[in-house]
Design a protein around this nucleic acid. Structure first.
Lengths: 250, 250
DNA sequence: GGTGCGAATTAACCAGAATCAAGGTTCCGG
DNA sequence: CCGGAACCTTGATTCTGGTTAATTCGCACC
């Protein structure tokens, strides 16, 4: 069982039968934004929570849709992306179970600027704007968490901008593999590590701001120079240190 | 007097002589983040505020420096940028008087990831982390403002990512000119508008993620097709509607 | 009126990445 | 076992934008 699994790991129910509210409270307590809140506080959220499923390919919201709350992904995979007028698409984030999305836009009175689409069959929670705002009025500590979370988001996005504008495609891909390895890699009997790409190569390519053709080619180059071994969606890295120090030149 | 001026417009002092604290309170009341706070609240901030000047070219902070507060620019111009190991530089924001910067990183215990450098002689206020956090504990409404401000920032940054990845250099430049015109343009006797670039072309080019050579070329192309007239740092736009609808093709 | 320096332009050339166009895999469902 | 649909790879070609370098412009300072 690796982090690549499409399920959000939560503590098991204390007993066989729990109420729907209890179940939701348990799930909510596991997301970074809400962990640390008391049972009672979480219960207040539960009133505004809607359990939801989405089949692979279905769109949760489009650009321009009004925002009524934020989402927590329990199971499956979601991509956030925008599309240009010419139909080109750019993925800005691949959301994994346990992550939330759509918060930032909730705090402004603006419609979504990105769209969200299920990459696999999903189960998610939708938390209504209303209960979030009510809790913000009540609990200053909750506000602090939101501020921390937004700052974090901002930080990551700036790092993305840096990557896009200062690194070549090759460097971006190596960087991606190293990050992916960190949270998902599993060591093999020999000294190497393996990792499985979380979704299709085309989608990952777009996330890294390149075409799938170019992504494919660079993967091939890296394989040719012995830095990685590609086996379908699985990538083996014989010597991770070598990969780490190779970021530049052919 | 246009928005291009390098001074932050604040209400004049009520009388000739006011105390240093009163002056700072007056200045603080004008920034979006703090406007709406009472006199007393602002006075609490004043304790943690330091007036500061920075000569053109001087660096306010480097990547990696610890963050002790945020800045408010009163006069002058500041760029936020990161530099790659090979010495390449990418400007992510050109800060104008009245804008604040460096807040986001203040809410995390991380060092700066960008550097800030004065593009002109500057006067600024530095607000200490400490008083911000104290006020956050005291005033939930202030927290709300911070949340709104961070969300706004996030929104703009995502729009930037979209621009970088979905638009060509030409489109980015036209988009920039149109935005700049909106907040700075001044109509001329004839039906056209003029605007003055806020800083050197090289810096603006970097902000738009291109080299100054390429920027120059495209400006030349636009001039050749009659969409703009370049006169040093001043750009004349004879027909803004035409520019607005021309975003694509040569 | 020089002198010197940073900013801007221009042109020739180059490289990274996109596009276009076939094929090839893999994995299903029938 | 066949046929189709995604997905991926590969090659040829084009293009956008970067690199390098030479020149000019604008301007502050002697």
């Amino acid at each position: 069982m690796t982090a690549n699994d499409l399920k959000f790991v939560v503590p098991a129910a204390p007993c066989g039968d729990e109420s729907e509210t209890e179940r939701i409270v348990r799930l909510l307590g596991c997301i970074p934004l809400l962990s640390g809140l008391t049972r009672d506080e979480l219960a207040r959220f539960a009133r505004g929570v809607r359990m939801q499923t989405a089949g692979r390919g279905s769109v949760l919201f489009h650009r321009g849709d009004p925002c009524h709350g934020f989402y927590l992904l329990l199971e499956g995979q979601v991509k956030l992306a925008f599309t240009s007028s010419e139909g080109h698409e750019k993925v800005i984030e691949i959301v994994r179970p346990g992550q939330s999305f759509g918060e930032a836009v909730m705090f402004m009175d603006k419609p979504y600027i990105v769209m969200a689409q299920a990459l696999a069959d999903c189960r998610l929670l939708h938390v209504a704007k209303k209960v979030v705002f009510e809790e913000m009025d009540r609990d200053p500590l909750f506000c602090r968490r939101i501020i921390a979370s937004l700052s974090q988001r901002l930080h990551l996005l700036i790092a993305d901008v840096e990557t896009y504008s200062l690194h070549t495609a090759r460097e971006r891909i190596i960087g991606y593999l190293l990050r992916e390895e960190e949270l998902d890699g599993s060591p093999t009997p020999s000294g190497s590590v393996s990792l499985r790409l979380p979704t299709s190569k085309g989608t990952i390519a777009s996330r890294l701001n390149l075409t799938q053709e170019h992504f494919s080619r660079i993967l091939h180059e890296l394989a040719e120079s012995g830095l990685i071994v590609v086996e379908g969606r699985t990538i083996h890295i014989p010597d991770i240190e070598k990969l780490r120090t190779t970021r530049a030149h052919y």
